[in-house]
């Protein structure tokens, strides 16, 4: 395989990885607050369908993204209310959210099948080559010649990383996920932190979904996420709750996602359906490998999955 093809492949991997990146970052934020939201797939679908609906009817990219974020956030709000305020089982609540999101998207999306986004709309997501960075040989083409959402993805990862490790609020958030009772005793507003980060996490998942329906595909199709939300949940474990590592994980899986199609033209005779299994297989392998060793640095937030109730007795 020659270099041009490899660069094109890696570039495509970045694009395919971007929806995963948004969703993974969103779930990292949620899990850092101590809540395991398995509704990522549902929130992505809600974001994807609302983004497309608004994008189609207004031709305004910004409004479409806002709608997607709000839709994802709305899904997360249901989850937050159930698990934070009503202390429902997080696993089941998350699954219910995925079912809800799937139904909601199928429902709203019924009228959107076969519609095309306007030229004016798609102009908002043209590739922009970044000055200086875009001129670096190979890397420039792979990483810095993309549509604006890819850059927003990078930026979100960096901001989230800085937030978690370098700010007061980030410290408080980590404490909430580790030991909410300690955070509470230190006068951190635990419930507020949980709600806020679950909602923001949901909004990011919504944007991740919208990237699929608005930029990547870009038409509406039923079940457009095809399990990416679940892969994002696995990527959170893979990146050990670290936003910087999530970038790597997301792009790796972006590559795995498209490798089947890319290899088809190269004379390798393996069915594309077999290749389509790869991301899922690799996810399992990675999870198993990650579970081999347990150390403190890469451990999940300690209160993950547990409801917090101050007046428990």
């Amino acid at each position: 395989m020659n270099t041009v093809l490899v660069i094109a492949f890696l570039k495509a991997a970045v694009i395919a990885g971007t929806p995963l990146l948004f969703a993974t970052l969103g779930e990292i934020m949620t899990e850092r607050a101590g809540n395991l939201n398995l509704g990522v797939e549902g929130m992505m679908l809600m974001g994807a369908v609302m983004g497309f609906q608004v994008g189609y009817s207004t031709s305004n990219p910004l409004l479409a993204l806002i709608a997607a974020a709000l839709a994802g956030g709305a899904g997360a709000l249901i989850f937050a209310f159930l698990t934070v305020s009503l202390r429902s089982n997080q696993v089941v609540s998350g699954l219910a959210l995925t079912i809800f999101g799937t139904g909601f998207a199928g429902f709203v999306g019924q009228g959107l099948v076969g519609l095309k986004l306007s030229e004016k709309f798609s102009a908002g997501f043209l590739k922009i080559k970044l000055p200086l960075l875009g001129d670096i040989p190979a890397l420039g083409e792979i990483f810095f010649n993309h549509d604006i959402l890819v850059y927003i993805g990078y930026l979100t990862a960096i901001i989230l990383g800085l937030y978690l490790y370098n700010t007061r609020n980030g410290l408080n958030l980590r404490a909430v996920g580790e030991n909410p009772a300690a955070a509470d005793a230190a006068s951190v507003r635990v419930t507020r932190y949980k709600y806020l980060h679950i909602l923001l996490g949901g909004a990011l998942c919504g944007i991740g979904g919208a990237y699929l329906s608005l930029v990547y595909v870009p038409v509406w199709q039923e079940n457009i996420t095809a399990g990416r939300g679940w892969i994002a949940v696995a990527l959170v474990i893979f990146s050990s709750w670290n936003p910087y590592k999530a970038v790597f994980g997301a792009f790796l899986f972006g590559g795995l996602d498209i490798i089947g199609f890319r290899l088809q033209g190269t004379g390798i005779v393996i069915s594309q359906y077999i290749f389509a299994m790869i991301p899922y297989l690799v996810t399992i392998i990675i999870l198993v490998v990650v579970s081999f060793k347990k150390d403190r640095k890469n451990a999940p937030p300690k209160s993950l999955g547990e409801p917090y109730f101050r007046e428990e007795r």
Binding site: V92, F100, G103, F104, A105, F107
Partner: peptide, 12 residues
């Protein structure tokens, strides 16, 4: 898909 929505609502 409305059935899914109603099911999920009941579950919620």
């Amino acid at each position: 898909a409305s059935a899914l929505v109603i099911q999920a609502l009941i579950l919620f």
